[in-house]
């Protein structure tokens, strides 16, 4: 009577142990990456098979880009506040509003240009095939693909 119960339980315990073993060993890398200082960059290293030297170079580029990005964002925010103030003071598109909007658009364009430049620099630091893959992926994620006609709907 006890032997079949023992076999049944042993089978189930073995299945659970096998599941847990495979799961934890398979996801250990993901967990380790998540607890790092810059998990996004760690992911980039893993996803695009970067060497330590390439990763170090990309990390430096990333940090330099982010500090510049923060400054550009600050200027865009400042310009947005200026536009909001001008819009609140009138009920017409004044030359000042026009000028502020143009400046705001230029700041955004500059920001986008710097971002694309960063992507190109990063892709050039990667092995050629991975660089191509990175560029295709990141452009798909960041450059708007909506056609102009769709913006009216």
């Amino acid at each position: 009577m006890r032997r079949p119960i023992l076999i049944l339980v042993a089978g189930l315990a073995l299945a659970v142990a096998a599941y847990c073993g495979v799961y934890y060993s398979g996801t250990a890398n993901c967990c380790h990456m998540n607890h790092g200082k810059t998990p996004e960059l760690a992911w980039l290293k893993q996803e695009f098979h970067l060497s330590d030297a390439e990763f170090k170079r990309i990390t430096e580029m990333h940090e330099a880009y982010l500090s510049g990005c923060a400054e550009r964002c600050r200027r865009i925010d400042q310009k947005n506040q200026e536009v909001a103030k001008l819009l609140a003071a009138t009920n017409n598109v004044t030359p000042e509003i026009e000028k502020a909007l143009t400046e705001s658009a230029l700041l955004r364009a500059d920001c986008q240009t710097k971002m694309l430049q960063h992507f190109y620099n990063v892709s050039r630091t990667m092995p050629p095939e991975q660089g191509k893959r990175y560029l295709a992926w990141v452009q798909q994620q960041t450059v708007p693909s909506d056609s102009h006609s769709q913006m009216h709907h």
Binding site: E40, L44, Y65, V138
Partner: peptide
């Protein structure tokens, strides 16, 4: 992670 990276670099 991909989405987080994109959010990090794309203002």
């Amino acid at each position: 992670m991909g989405a987080r990276y994109v959010q990090l670099v794309d203002p």
